[in-house]
Structures are given as C-alpha cells and as structure tokens.
Nucleic acid binder design. Structure first.
Lengths: 233, 233
DNA sequence: ATTAAAGTATGTTTTTTAACATTATTTCTA
DNA sequence: TAGAAATAATGTTAAAAAACATACTTTAAT
C-alpha cells in the first residue's frame, strides 16, 4: 500500500523544476538525502518556536501556514499547494519559526535537510538565484497584502481572498466553483475579519448575485464585479 | 566642495560589510562600476512603475519607502538609513517597483547597476547567501508587521512604530529623545491610522506620562509602558 | 516682514467593525 | 445512530476608527 503511494508520486525534480538545474552529481546527492513525510488532515507540520531543520516541498495535498497574533487570534499567511515549498524563510533567516503549519488535507511532503540545501546553494548559483527570486516575489506579496488587509474594507478584503483562492486553485469542472473548500473561519482569518463578518459578507455577496454557495462550495457568478470590489477596497 | 564631500564618504565596503567578502578582483570590478548619487530632501529616488536598473546603498541620510494603497492613501513600508540597501526586492523579483522612495533628508547613495550585482552574485556564494538571508529577515518583518497592523488597536500600533523608530535610530544625547523627527502624517502612515488619530493618540500618551513632546521631537518617558502597550496591542 | 502653505490640535458626527447572543445545521465520534 | 462538538446564520449592541469641521501654530517663500 505504502509502495503504491510511492509509485504514484512524482520525482522531486518533477515536482519542483528548479532541481532540474542541478548537476547530475548534485541531483544524486539530493536524492540520497531527502525524506518523504506523510501528514493526516489537520496534523501539525511545525509550530511557532520550533527550530527549522528541513526545507519542505509539497508533493500532494495542501498546507496551511498561519500566525498567532494578539490574543492568539490566528491569521492565515498563505496556503501551500503541490510543487510549492515552505519553511525556507525561517531557515534562511536563521530564526525559529514564527508561524505554524498544518496539513489542510492528507499531504505528502519531500523533506530536505538544512545542510543539504545550504550545500547545494553554495555550489549552484542557479539554485541561489531561484531562492533570491522567490523570496523577493514573496516579499512583494507580503507587502501588498499588508496594505490590502489594513486599507480595504471588509467586502474588499473578502473579495481579494476569494480572487486569490480562485487564482491559486482555479475552478472545478463547472468553471465557476472555487477548487478549495475553506471553512468560514479560515476564510475570515485570511481576510482579517471575524467569522461572523465573513458569513455575513458572503451572504451579502450571494444577495448581490456575485456568488452562489452550497455549503463550503463557493461559485463565482460575477467575477468582474468581484475583482472590482477587491480592487477599489 | 564636491571633492570635500567625496573625501568624507566611507568607501562602499566600509558602508556595507558584505562587500568585504568579495575577492579583490570582484571588489575592483564593483568599484569601477558604481556611481554616487545625491538627493535633496524630499527628492524622489524612484516611483511606482519604474523599472529597477540599480541597487542602492545609503551612504548618508535616510530614505522613505512607501506604497500607495486604496485611494492613494500612502503607507510607509520602511525607513532606510546609512549602510542599508534598498530597491533590491523589485530588482530580484524582476518586477517594476510597487513602492516609491524619496530622500527623507539630504542623502548620498551608492548606485550599483543590476548587471554588476547579478554578476557578483553569480560568482560569489557569500554574496548570494547574504541576500537570501536578508530577504528572509525582511519577509519575517513584513509578515509580523501585517499581523500587528491589522490586529493591534491604535495605541498598540503607534507604540509599535515609536519602539521601532527608537530601535532603528536610537536616542539623542539626552537618552530619551528619538533621533528622527517625523511629521504626524508620516507617523500615521507608518502606523496605519489617520493623521488626526496619530495626533490624538500622541497627546493621550503625553497625558499618560508615557511620552513628552516638543514639536516633532518625541521623548520616551516610560519605555516599559510603551513596550507593554505595543505588545498587548 | 508678510502671506501662504503646511502642519498641528481637538471636538463632533458617522461609518465600520467587533462582540455578543441565539438558533439552526452539519460533522464527527463514541 | 445518538449525542456532542464544531460550524453556520443572523439579529442586536457596543466600541473603534474615520470623516469632517474648525481653529491655531509653525515654517517657508517672496
């Protein structure tokens, strides 16, 4: 059974194309040193205060990265899906984690030890550049998010989260249902609002014929309007 | 006169120690390729939408980095002081600028062309690591900021900004006055609040004997209390 | 030196958002 | 499958913050 799973898994360089830029020797070195980890739904990958020892790369499933703020109120920083990596920020900054990560659904992860990735970076300028580029893009997103979350009104913030989820995960076959089912609470903690307000605002979007809902399934009826609300705040 | 200024300036590797890790040849290459730029107070260094062509390193003065949000409401992202570099985020992400930068006071800047820094990074793993580390620290700060700005109340946000300014610029000789004089408006746009609210909250802090003010000079009377307010939000 | 402009200070009003309360519904688990 | 726990839905109220208005003060320019 475990074997079957392994066989279904894409190789590490298929999952994250950056590893195709390694030399053959470096790729062998990497393949001798990674581990495969499996997490059940809601299982913790790491928590605030832990020391980062590995960099993770999602092979299957999704991981929720969140932070605890004032009075332990959680804020979802990002959702990490297949082929994306995480845990590298704290590792590179040489800090303990300031976020928590849990499996959002059953998840399989490639786990690469800190020393291995540091070695590879030190001897492969392409890989170094990849992380410089990635961190820079991440930082741009974080800055933009900070402005959105603080300056936009509730409707704008929720619209932005929905657009973000749609852009990250796409639609189901019907071409309208967002391909990730978050609880109202998670949606709220992505959008910096209370669960009540997320529920209320979603309902209002349905009344306004911008969305349609069926439990956690959210259909985007009027994407243009949703983008407009997200933009103007 | 211009010559005199030059002589007062520290060399580029004295300003930013990371350049001491370059090989002698690389340092020569760098020194043959940088330029020195001078900006008057409030002069623009770059603006939103510009394409980054150089990385900047502050030799003297301070630079204000800000973003325009909803309805062009500005938000100060950070203040950059002597020996700190900026403009690298957009450059590495290969995006146009999403922030604006203006000289906060008369400022002298080392300007290094994009290709030069990319060449150096490609051939010097230390320098690459330096930027990976720096970007990771920046990203941690940005994430923490996002949570603070959204979850803390006005007093907490203002206290946090004051603590940040104190930690970045230190005190004057009196051991209490913060060594940077920002307008109430700038203070507000660092702390995600209106100018009125910044003024009102500063006044309240004075009533509470946490601060004392003389124009733009802000004295911290009770630092413990200020840190407590910043922490609890 | 005078005037305009920018910045500061506060009071009042309105809007936005969070907090709370109650009920219904779904999901999990023993 | 019953019962508990989590989630969802809404109405009501309270608090926080923005918007607005006005007056005063400092700074900069002519």
């Amino acid at each position: 059974m475990a074997k079957k799973y392994e066989e279904e898994l894409k190789s590490i360089e298929e999952i994250n194309e950056v590893f195709k830029r390694l030399t053959p020797e470096q790729l062998v070195y990497l393949k001798q040193n990674y581990e495969i980890l499996r997490f059940r739904k809601n299982e913790m990958v790491y928590t605030e205060g832990d020391t980062p020892t590995h960099i993770y790369c999602v092979a299957k499933g999704k991981v929720k990265i969140f932070k605890r703020g004032v009075g332990n109120r959680t804020q979802i920083m990002r959702m990490v899906g297949p082929s994306e990596s995480f845990a590298y920020r704290a590792m590179f900054a040489e800090e303990n984690f300031v976020t928590c990560a849990t499996a959002f659904e059953p998840t399989v992860i490639y786990s690469i030890p800190r020393e291995v990735i540091r070695n590879l970076i030190a001897h492969n300028a392409d890989l170094a550049w990849h992380f410089i580029h990635k961190l820079s893009v991440d930082l741009g997103i974080a800055d933009a998010r900070a402005v959105s979350l603080t300056q936009k009104h509730i409707r704008g913030r929720l619209a932005e989260s929905l657009i973000f989820l749609r852009d990250s995960y796409g639609y189901e076959e019907d071409g309208a249902t967002i391909s990730i089912y978050l609880s109202r609470e998670d949606l709220a903690s992505m959008s910096n609002m209370t669960t009540s307000n997320a529920i209320r605002t979603l309902s209002q979007f349905c009344v306004d014929k911008i969305l349609a809902m069926d439990g956690r399934k959210i259909k985007i009826i009027d994407e243009d309007q949703l983008r407009r609300i997200s933009k103007i705040g």
